[in-house]
């Protein structure tokens, strides 16, 4: 087998590993680091490191890609982006949306579910007070719309139900979209 090809493969494998390790770095730093490493290896080759073993030694002296990337990460603050909604936030929103529909099944289940949902909503740090109020009032507001349609327009019950659902779903979607993870202070 051709020696040059073999050492090329070693270098490529090394640079591939480095690129993978460096994926988390900002693009500018990553590209610069990879360029520096490529140049270093090219310089070592120009200086006479050509055989497999010599190339292997050059790479070994450079160090493990993970170590090099760790050095490039020094001083960078790793910011963990918290999710906007955690699973229990979804549960809260889900309970608020679904609880009214459980009325026909059991009033107690519906009420308990809704109260739990409201409690979870208010204990979550994902919403401002305004949005917590909107979340809390989703059921009453939807009901009010249905009632108004019924009283003032004598709308058929189906129309009122659909309007109620649309209001509830619309407000719930808005609630989900306006969830914000708190800014991290540390």
């Amino acid at each position: 087998m051709n020696m040059e090809l073999d050492s090329n493969r070693l270098v490529d494998a090394y640079l591939d590993e480095l690129a993978a390790e460096a994926a988390a770095l900002p693009a500018g730093r990553r590209d610069e680091l990879l360029d520096d490493m490529k140049t270093h290896i090219a310089e070592a080759r120009a200086a006479g490191a050509t055989s497999d073993d010599e190339i292997r030694e050059v790479l070994q002296r450079l160090g493990r890609p993970s170590e090099i990337v760790a050095a490039a990460t020094d001083g960078l603050v790793q910011v963990e982006v918290p999710p906007r909604l955690r699973p229990w936030d979804f549960v809260a929103v889900g309970l608020l949306l679904v609880a009214p529909y459980l009325l026909s099944f059991s009033v107690i289940v519906a009420m308990v579910g809704w109260v739990i949902g409201v409690g979870m909503l208010w204990s979550s740090n994902r919403w401002t007070t305004i949005w917590k109020l909107i979340g809390t009032l989703t059921w009453p507001l939807g009901y009010a719309v249905a009632l108004a349609l019924d009283m003032f327009f004598q709308a058929p019950i189906q129309v009122s139900l659909v309007a109620d659902s649309l209001v509830a779903i619309g407000l719930t979607v808005a609630l989900v979209l306006n969830a914000r993870a708190p800014r991290q202070t540390s």
Binding site: T39, H40, R61, G63, R64, A72
Partner: peptide, 27 residues
């Protein structure tokens, strides 16, 4: 870069992983 790395590596015990000098230079 390469010259600097060699100069540092020639001194005993100063550099264990030559590759880490490049991120240092960038910083």
């Amino acid at each position: 870069g390469f010259e600097l790395v060699k100069a540092l590596s020639d001194v005993d015990g100063m550099v264990t992983t030559e590759g880490t000098i490049y991120p240092l230079l960038a910083r």
